[in-house]
C-alpha cells in the first residue's frame, strides 16, 4: 500500500519534471529540471528492484550528464550567447500533439500486451539465473554484462571511445580557457574539500568495482564516481586543459577496450568461445580496465580538451 503510494508520487513527479523540461521558457531551468528528472528516475529504478541501475542513473544519468549540460551552457554563455527559443517555424500544435499522443498510446499498448502475455519458459533471463555459477560472480547483472552478453559491453566501450574521438575531431580549436581556472583555486575551503572528497571518490569507485561481483555495483558505477572526482578537480582549477593527449592518457583511453578484447581473444586461442571469461578473476581484471577507461573518457569529455595536466 505504501509502495503503491510511493510509486504514484514518483510517477507524478517524473511526469511533472518532464513537462517542465519541455515547457520552461529558460533553457537553464529546463536543464535543471532534467537533472532532477534523472534523480527521480534513479528512485524508480530502486522501486523496480534494479539497484545497479539506480546507482548508474544517479551517477551517470543525473550526475555526469548534468555536469556536461551545465558546462556546455557555461561555454555558450562565455561566448556571449543567451539562447532564446525562437517563435517561428515550429510545426503546428495540431500536428505534434496527436503525434506525441499516438506514440504514447503505442508505448502503452506494447507494454500492456507484453505484461499480459503468459510467462514463457526458457527466456534469456531464466537461463542467466540458472547458469550464473558458470560465470563466477553472484550479482546477476554483472554476470549478464560481462559473462553472457560480453559483446554488448565490449562494443559499449567502443561507443564511449568513439564519442570522445568524435568530440575531439569536431572541436578544432583548442580553447585553454574552457574550464574555470585560478579564481576558484584560491578559496581555502575548496582545497580542504578536495583533499577529503577526491580520495573518498577513489575509494568508493574501487569499492563499487569490487562489490559489483556480489552486490549492486560494477565498473560503470565506479567509473562514474571516479569521473565525478575528476570533474571536481577540473572545476576547481587543479586540472587544466592540455593541448595534446599524453601517452598515459592514450593508454588509459584504450585500456578497457584492449584488455577486454585481448582476454577474449586469448580465451578463443585457448579453445573456448570468444569472450567467455574464465572465472571471477578475469571479470575483475577486465572490470578494472573498464573502470579506468570509463573514468578517463568521461572526464575528458567533460573537459572538452585533448588532455589534462596538473595546473601550474
Amino acid at each position: 500500500m505504501i509502495g503503491l503510494a510511493m510509486d504514484c508520487v514518483l510517477a507524478l513527479g517524473i511526469v511533472f519534471l518532464a513537462v517542465q523540461t519541455v515547457r520552461s521558457r529558460s533553457l537553464f531551468q529546463a536543464m535543471l529540471m532534467f537533472i532532477v528528472f534523472g534523480l527521480l528516475m534513479s528512485l524508480s529504478w530502486a522501486r523496480l528492484h534494479a539497484p545497479d541501475l539506480a546507482l548508474a542513473e544517479a551517477a551517470i544519468g543525473a550526475g555526469i550528464t548534468g555536469a556536461l549540460l551545465l558546462v556546455t551552457w557555461r561555454r555558450l554563455q562565455a561566448e556571449g550567447h543567451d539562447p532564446v527559443e525562437s517563435e517561428q517555424s515550429a510545426p503546428s500544435m495540431w500536428l505534434t500533439l496527436p503525434t506525441a499522443g499516438a506514440a504514447s498510446l503505442l508505448v502503452v499498448i506494447i507494454g500492456w500486451v507484453a505484461l499480459q502475455l503468459p510467462a514463457v519458459p526458457g527466456t534469456a533471463g531464466e537461463l542467466a539465473w540458472q547458469r550464473l555459477e558458470e560465470v563466477g560472480v553472484s550479482n546477476p547483472v554483472t554476470g549478464v554484462l560481462l559473462g553472457f552478453r560480453a559483446y554488448d559491453t565490449l562494443l559499449e566501450m567502443a561507443v564511449l571511445l568513439a564519442a570522445w574521438l568524435g568530440a575531439r575531431a569536431v572541436a578544432t580549436e583548442f580553447r585553454p580557457g574552457a574550464l574555470p581556472g585560478p579564481a576558484h583555486a584560491e578559496v581555502p575551503l575548496v582545497g580542504a574539500l578536495l583533499s577529503l572528497v577526491v580520495p573518498i571518490s577513489i575509494l568508493v569507485a574501487v569499492y563499487l568495482l569490487q562489490a559489483g561481483g556480489s552486490a549492486p555495483g560494477g565498473a560503470f558505477q565506479g567509473g562514474a564516481v571516479l569521473a565525478a572526482g575528476g570533474v571536481l578537480l577540473c572545476l576547481t582549477g587543479r586540472l587544466e586543459a592540455a593541448a595534446d593527449t599524453s601517452g598515459l592518457e592514450r593508454l588509459g583511453l584504450i585500456l578497457g577496450l584492449s584488455v577486454f578484447s585481448l582476454v577474449g581473444l586469448l580465451v578463443m586461442a585457448g579453445g573456448g568461445p570468444m569472450l567467455a571469461l574464465p572465472g571471477a578473476w578475469a571479470i575483475y581484471l577486465v572490470e578494472t580496465a573498464l573502470l579506468v577507461s570509463i573514468a578517463l573518457t568521461l572526464v575528458l569529455l567533460f573537459a572538452a580538451a585533448p588532455g589534462l595536466r596538473r595546473a601550474s
Binding site: 510509486d7 514518483l10 510517477a11 517524473i14 511526469v15 518532464a18 513537462v19 523540461t21 519541455v22 524508480s44 523496480l48 506525441a100 499522443g101 506514440a103 504514447s104 498510446l105 508505448v107 502503452v108 507494454g111 500492456w112 505484461l115
Partner: peptide, 11 residues
C-alpha cells in the same frame, strides 16, 4: 510505471 513511461516518451 508503464503509464509513466508512455507519458514521458510522448512528452
Amino acid at each position: 510505471y508503464l503509464l509513466t513511461a508512455a507519458i514521458v516518451f510522448g512528452i
